[in-house]
Design a protein around this nucleic acid. Structure first.
Lengths: 228, 228
DNA sequence: TATTGTGAAAGGGTTCACAGCG
DNA sequence: CGCTGTGAACCCTTTCACAATA
């Protein structure tokens, strides 16, 4: 989950470079946000320096990151804000709607479902599943909590492309397997479990305990500082 | 938030090595979990190979990671499970209780508050704050939602060391400032905002939109595969 | 013999510095 | 002149390979 290696060449983005690091990808998301702010502020142009200042990187880093996908700036001038924002949106793949399914109708699932930031970025939760018969049938806004046993049918019907696992750790693997079976190839996993998935499925983990433990490490080792 | 650089040498852990990468730190958390499983299974000893298999790394990586903090194994035998688990817990700083404050009594805050995995690892949510007068005074289990204006007093009184920001983006910076004012030096931020904090404060961000965008990138660039 | 601990080599991400161009 | 785009240098992380040793 650290690098991306090019294998075929039919993607919508020209992609001169075959690789991009996970950290570069994260930075692109940040630039995206900064560009939205600049655009809202009516700025027509930004320099790599300005983009860098906002995100705690360097201008060289910004230029390198962008250069993986083409050259969008004008020398002596900087980058045209609306154009670059649009190009970045296309590169990240957020210039369209994505259907998302949540599995696990617990508190965390509810929080994600209610989170407005998702919808605003084109992520639509179109299905919620659970294994608990007391939760199945409940209304979640315009959705009804479905039986996880119906996952495959429903996911195919609703054209879900992204799955979010918000179950307890012990259910996570079988839920992920069902997602894969239903044709989902991108999974965001909040369960503290190491999922084993086919090569063609992209997985990202969000592990809250690990983040807290990293904070503890820093607190415990007071003589160590967290470097940039 | 990528490296740790040693500056003083009075930490409880000997720490022969002055640096450890963020990725190594994450792996240590994973080893911790595997060791707990091995211990529960009654295993007296594990090899770096076995630890690596579970976590998708290599045995050399495991040995290197551990070697930053000392040498815990026996050549030809492997690592003693209970001892290594205890040592790792001490290294990560999770061999004690940590008091945590949540700011933002919304759905995500509620989910984190209810999350059992935290308490099980020694993280105790001892205070919840919000700015919304309709939420202030509500009972959350044994806690009462407090006015964020009282944050400093309450945080000092309850000896909170870790703060979790679960507010909307526009409130995040001032909440973080208040936390720092109250003496908190470790912050976990869920708000999609770039926080600016003093050097001595450790910050970690969990940005759900960025994780989803990375999935989109992978889905959009179908010819690219996510490498290890 | 099996497996650790670790220098040395390899790999790859970041920074530097400057040529190229508006 | 100002700022981008980029090859080269640098630096850090991972991998390799083997000496050390229970």
């Amino acid at each position: 989950m650290t690098k991306l290696v090019k294998t075929i060449t039919n993607s919508p983005v020209p992609a001169m470079n075959p690789r991009i690091s996970d950290s570069a990808l994260r930075r692109l998301s940040h630039y995206m946000r900064f560009l939205e702010a600049f655009e809202a502020a009516g700025r027509g142009t930004v320099s790599s320096e300005e983009l860098a200042d906002r995100g705690g990187t360097t201008s060289a880093q910004v230029r390198k990151d962008l250069s993986h996908f083409g050259s969008f700036g004008k020398r002596g001038l900087g980058y045209p804000v609306p154009e670059l924002r649009a190009r970045l949106a296309a590169i990240l793949g957020i210039d369209r709607r994505w259907n998302v399914a949540l599995v696990g109708a617990g508190k965390l699932g509810a929080a994600l479902h209610a989170y407005d930031g998702f919808r605003r970025r084109g992520f639509h939760v179109v299905a919620v599943f659970d294994a608990d018969s007391r939760k199945i049938g409940r209304r979640w806004g315009s959705l009804t909590v479905e039986d996880v046993a119906c996952l495959e049918t429903s996911v195919r019907e609703k054209e879900v492309e992204i799955g979010i696992v918000v179950t307890p750790a012990d259910a996570a693997q079988e839920v992920a397997d069902a997602m894969v079976e239903a044709g989902i190839t991108a999974i965001l996993n909040f369960a503290p479990a190491k999922l084993v998935l086919p090569e063609n499925v992209t997985l990202r983990d969000v592990n809250l305990a690990i983040e807290l433990e990293a904070l503890c490490f820093a607190l415990t080792h007071d003589g160590w500082i967290v470097g940039r």
